[in-house]
Amino acid sequence: MEFSHFVDLMEVVDIPVSGKQFTWFSNDGTAMSRLDRFLVSEGFIDKGRISGQWIGDCDV
């Protein structure tokens, strides 16, 4: 809730993702999270014609 409140106060947008839904997985596969986020202003989205971000496979 605090993070969402911060995003609203800063008037930025969390760019929608395509591809994979999560960027982090626990070793046993029981926990997943989206740690990597790009927060940008509406003006930056319009100027850069940004429509989203792609999360690919993590083969580390």
Rank of each mutant, 00 (worst) to 15 (best):
E2Y: 03
E2N: 06
E2K: 08
S4G: 04
H5I: 10
H5L: 13
F6K: 08
V7G: 00
V7M: 01
D8W: 00
D8A: 02
D8G: 03
L9Q: 14
L9E: 11
M10L: 10
M10A: 14
M10E: 11
M10S: 14
V13Q: 05
V13E: 12
D14S: 01
D14R: 01
D14A: 00
D14N: 07
I15Y: 08
I15M: 10
P16W: 06
P16A: 06
P16Y: 06
V17F: 15
V17A: 14
S18D: 04
S18E: 09
G19Q: 13
G19V: 14
K20A: 13
K20Y: 10
K20C: 11
K20V: 01
Q21T: 10
Q21N: 05
Q21S: 08
F22Q: 09
F22K: 12
F22R: 09
T23W: 00
T23R: 01
W24P: 10
F25W: 01
N27T: 02
D28S: 03
D28N: 11
D28V: 06
D28H: 04
T30F: 00
T30Q: 07
A31I: 01
A31N: 04
A31R: 08
M32Q: 13
S33G: 05
S33W: 12
S33E: 13
R34G: 00
R34M: 03
L35R: 08
D36C: 03
D36M: 03
R37A: 01
R37I: 06
F38T: 15
L39N: 04
L39W: 09
L39E: 06
L39D: 08
L39Q: 06
L39F: 07
V40R: 00
E42W: 09
E42H: 10
E42D: 10
G43D: 12
G43E: 11
F44M: 12
I45A: 00
I45R: 13
G48C: 12
G48H: 08
I50D: 04
S51R: 15
G52T: 05
G52S: 07
G52N: 05
G52P: 08
Q53N: 12
Q53C: 15
W54K: 15
W54P: 06
W54L: 14
G56T: 09
G56K: 05
D57F: 11
C58Y: 02
V60S: 14
V60R: 08
V60H: 08
V60L: 09
V60Y: 07
